[in-house]
Lab assay of single mutants.
Amino acid sequence: MSAKKSPEELKGIFEKYAAKEGDPNQLSKEELKLLLQTEFPSLLKGPSTLDELFEELDKNGDGEVSFEEFQVLVKKISQ
């Protein structure tokens, strides 16, 4: 996936994966893993990378990643 996506496209991608289980407005760690493996495969170099990335993105510590938290990752990789 190209990092150059419109905000609407990014929101659609986020919602597609977030709706798989639990809260449709939040990504669980498994949903984030699936999204990254599919859309940004070069970001995941191993299991520790996912854990570190999830911890970094989950700013409020609720165990899930909101769209706002996800946007931090998108901004970081599009620079």
Rank of each mutant, 00 (worst) to 15 (best):
P7T: 15
E55K: 08
F67C: 07
G61Y: 06
L53G: 06
F70L: 03
P47K: 05
I77M: 03
A18K: 02
T38E: 10
G46C: 09
S42I: 09
M1L: 01
E8Q: 13
G63C: 08
L44K: 11
F40E: 03
Q37N: 08
P7Q: 15
Y17N: 01
V74M: 12
P41E: 02
Y17D: 00
E69P: 02
E39T: 02
Y17E: 01
M1Q: 00
V65K: 03
P24I: 13
D23I: 12
E39V: 01
L43A: 12
K76E: 04
E8P: 03
S2P: 00
S42W: 05
K4D: 15
V65M: 13
T49Y: 11
L10S: 02
A19T: 15
G12H: 14
L32K: 00
E56H: 11
E56F: 07
G22R: 10
L32Y: 02
P41K: 12
E8R: 08
S28H: 08
L35A: 12
F54Y: 14
G61R: 08
S66D: 05
K20M: 14
K76W: 01
L57N: 08
V72Q: 07
Q26T: 06
T49F: 13
N25M: 05
G46H: 13
L34T: 13
F70G: 00
A3K: 04
N25C: 10
E15T: 15
D58K: 11
G46M: 14
S6Q: 06
E68I: 02
G46L: 12
L57C: 13
K16W: 03
A18S: 07
K29W: 06
D58R: 06
E56S: 11
L34K: 13
L50S: 09
A3M: 12
K29Q: 05
P24Q: 12
E9V: 07
E56V: 10
K29C: 11
K59E: 11
K4V: 03
E15G: 07
K33A: 14
P7K: 07
V74Y: 14
E64R: 10
K33P: 05
I77Q: 05
K33V: 10
E30K: 09
F54V: 10
F70Q: 00
G61I: 10
G63E: 15
L43Y: 12
Q26G: 09
A3D: 15
P47G: 09
L34P: 09
K59F: 15
E8F: 06
K59T: 12
Q26C: 05
E21K: 12
L36G: 00
I13S: 01
E52Q: 09
L32I: 15
N25H: 12
T38R: 05
K59Q: 10
M1A: 00
E21M: 10
K20R: 12
K33Y: 04
G63Y: 11
E21S: 05
V72H: 09
K75T: 06
L44C: 11
K76T: 03
D23T: 12
G46D: 13
L27H: 00
F40I: 12
K29A: 13
L34I: 12
L36W: 06
Y17K: 01
L50R: 08
K75R: 06
F40L: 08
K11R: 02
F70Y: 08
S28Q: 11
L50K: 11
S42P: 12
P7N: 07
K59Y: 06
K29D: 11
E56C: 15
F54Q: 11
L50C: 14
G22Y: 02
L36R: 00
E39F: 01
S48Q: 15
V72A: 09
P24T: 13
M1R: 00
I13E: 01
F54W: 14
Q71S: 12
E55D: 13
G63K: 10
K59D: 10
D51M: 12
L44V: 12
S48F: 07
G22H: 05
S6G: 05
K76Y: 01
E39S: 01
E69M: 13
V74R: 02
F67V: 07
E31L: 08
L73K: 01
S48D: 04
E31I: 13
L27S: 00
Q26D: 03
I77Y: 04
P7V: 07
E39C: 01
S66M: 12
P41L: 06
P24W: 02
L34G: 13
N25D: 07
L35K: 00
G63N: 05
F54K: 08
E9K: 07
Q37A: 07
M1N: 02
K29E: 03
E55H: 12
E9H: 05
E55Q: 13
E30C: 10
L73Y: 07
V72T: 14
S42V: 07
E55N: 05
Y17M: 03
E56D: 06
S42M: 06
L35M: 13
K76V: 02
S6A: 02
P41M: 05
S66L: 04
K59C: 12
K16L: 09
K4G: 02
E68S: 05
E68Q: 05
A18F: 01
S78C: 00
K59M: 15
S48M: 07
N25A: 12
D51L: 06
D62T: 08
F14A: 00
K11S: 03
D23A: 10
F40Y: 10
L35R: 00
E64Y: 07
A19D: 09
D51A: 09
G61F: 11
N60S: 14
P47N: 05
A18H: 02
E21W: 02
L44E: 14
K45H: 11
V65T: 13
E21F: 15
E68G: 07
K4C: 02
E68H: 11
F40S: 03
G22I: 01
K75A: 04
Q37H: 08
N60E: 15
L50T: 10
K16D: 02
S2Y: 15
M1P: 00
V65P: 01
G22N: 03
V74L: 10
K45R: 11
P7D: 04
F14I: 01
S2E: 04
L53C: 08
M1C: 00
E56Y: 07
P47H: 06
E21Q: 09
K16T: 05
V74Q: 15
S6R: 02
D23M: 04
G12V: 13
T38P: 00
K76A: 02
S48R: 13
L10A: 05
K20A: 04
S28R: 06
E56W: 06
G63M: 10
F67K: 03
S48T: 09
E8T: 08
Q71A: 09
K11F: 13
F40R: 04
K16C: 04
K59H: 12
P41S: 14
N60C: 05
G61C: 13
F40A: 02
A19C: 11
E21P: 01
G46Y: 12
E69V: 10
K4R: 06
E56N: 13
K45N: 10
K45L: 10
G12F: 10
Y17T: 01
A18Q: 02
E15K: 09
